[in-house]
Each structure stands twice: as C-alpha cells, then as structure tokens.
C-alpha cells in the first residue's frame, strides 16, 4: 500500500490560491525531497498534509495508508503516524519538554487504543534519545523551545520525532539555521528514522542537507505545482544552475 497519495491538490490560504493541482505519491521506505523557490507553497503542502486550520482544500484528495486524510483532525492525523518537523518550532512557556512529550506520547497511545507508557519506560526512552541527538539532559526539563537557540529548537524537533516514532515524517526546512555540526547530528537523526516501513518528506531550500540524507526522489515545486521530478542529481543541478536553469522565475510565485 502507498504511504501517501496526493491527487490534484488545491489549497487556499485566506482566499489566496497557493497549491494549484499538486500530485505526489510516496511509498513506504522512500525519502522524498521537495525543493523550490520562496513562496512556491512548500510549507503550505506540509500544513495541508498535517491538517492545519486555515489551509482550505478546495479540490483534490490526500490519502494516507488508504484513509481519506481530509476527514481527520490534525491530532487524529498525528495519531495515524504523521509527524511534522516545524520550520519555526513553537514556544510553550511553563511546560517542560519532558511533560510535553509525555502528554504527546500518551495522547498518541490513547488514539491507538493503548495504555499510557509507564513512567520508568518513558524516562529511559527520553534519556536515550536525547543522548543520541547530543542534547543535554537539563534541556529536557526546560520549557518547550523557550529560550532555545535556532539550532537547539531544530534538535528538539528531532528528539520529539525520535520519541514519537512516526511512520511518516514531514521535515519543513529542518536544516535552516543549523551550523555544520548541528546539521550532521540532525541528519544522523533523520537517517536513523529510515526503514523499509517508514517514509520521509524533506522540504529544503538548499541541497546541502541532501548530501547527508540522500533522497530517492527530488521534486521541484513552483507556482503551486510539482514541475520536475528526478533523483539526487536534480538537486545538484539546481544548486549549479539555480531555478532559472529550469526556466522558473524565482519571483513568479
């Protein structure tokens, strides 16, 4: 069964047409990258898949593991196994990373008809994942993203991804704002999520992340549609010739 199938997707935000007939199919085990100029609709695609309010689907379908995703709320979609790594992770004052993740894990388990995770197992798991991603244990006690640097926020997203174990991850510019060491750690985290059952959609502006996380497919999104699909070499070509090389006006979107 396909993981994600998007057909002829049209999305409007505040009355403005952003996606205009996008098609995308992702199978289990595949890593897809979406590149494109600013304003092409990359983040809109991520939000539309995850069910953010205000992103109105005017036409088309999104099917996830055979289910009509458009009928599900954002938290139900998360329950189905979709994770969004945010381009700008949100601060939640007064709520520790630890408590936030515990609430999230138990909500997901409840959705799947499972009991809460035992406190001991949770602690073991979170310590292990934080270590893998080289996050200091005291960061877990701090309020979610409050006072975190850009790099720390992105790393925190990866800790959350590792903890929540999604089967499909959408990573929206996870590489932006990272120095080269952080980029390597984050990329390792993404690669650890790769498996024959899991899929990843990487949204990025630059191809440098794709040196570490090698995609099976690269798509170019421009003016609300996918205009070109290729393999890893497409990303390199874009880097060399720019979007203009594909005949895309960078400011057209």
């Amino acid at each position: 069964m396909t993981m994600l199938e998007i057909k002829n997707l049209h999305v409007e935000v505040a009355g403005q047409k952003i996606l205009k007939g996008l098609n995308l199919t992702i199978n289990p085990g595949e890593v897809h990258a979406i590149m494109g100029p600013n304003g092409a609709g990359k983040s809109t695609l991520a939000y539309a898949i995850c069910g953010k309010e205000g992103y109105e689907i005017t036409e088309g379908s999104v099917t996830f593991k055979g289910k009509n995703f458009l009928e599900l709320t954002a938290n139900e979609r998360a329950g189905e196994g979709v994770f969004l790594g945010f381009q700008y992770p949100v601060e939640i004052p007064g709520v520790s990373n630890m408590n936030f993740l515990k609430a999230a894990i138990n909500s997901l388990r409840k959705y799947r008809g499972e009991d809460d995770m035992a406190a001991v197992d949770f602690l073991k798991l979170i310590r292990a994942k934080a270590e893998e991603l080289e996050m200091k244990p005291e960061m877990l006690k701090r309020a979610v993203n409050v006072g975190f640097s850009g790099g720390e926020k992105k790393r925190n997203e990866m800790v959350q991804m590792a903890m929540l174990e999604p089967i499909f991850s959408v990573l929206d510019e996870t590489d932006s704002g990272l120095d080269i060491d952080a980029l390597r750690i984050v990329a390792d985290g993404i690669n650890r999520m790769r498996s024959p059952e899991k899929s990843i959609l990487v949204i990025t502006h630059y191809q440098r992340l794709l040196d570490y996380v090698v995609p099976d497919f690269v798509h170019v999104l421009a003016n609300g549609k996918i205009v070109k699909t290729g393999d890893k070499s497409l990303a390199l070509e874009l880097e060399k010739n720019g979007y203009a090389g594909l005949g895309i006006d960078e400011n057209a979107a």
């Binding site: 938290n75 992770p89 949100v90 601060e91 939640i92 007064g94």
Partner: peptide, 30 residues
C-alpha cells in the same frame, strides 16, 4: 493562545482540550 501553539500541540497528538489545558497550566505554573 496562538493558533501556532495549538497546532503544534495537535500535531503532536494532543486534542484541543488537552492542548488548551497544557498551555494554561504551563502559563500558571509559577
């Protein structure tokens, strides 16, 4: 309580009630 905070919580699996509760309890923590 911003749309962004709510969506962030929902995307992690919390329902609206749980999300508002978490955010408000965080706000009142001190």
């Amino acid at each position: 309580i911003s749309e962004e905070q709510l969506f962030y919580c929902l995307q992690r699996g919390l329902d609206v009630e749980e999300a508002v509760s978490l955010i408000v309890n965080g706000f009142c923590k001190e």
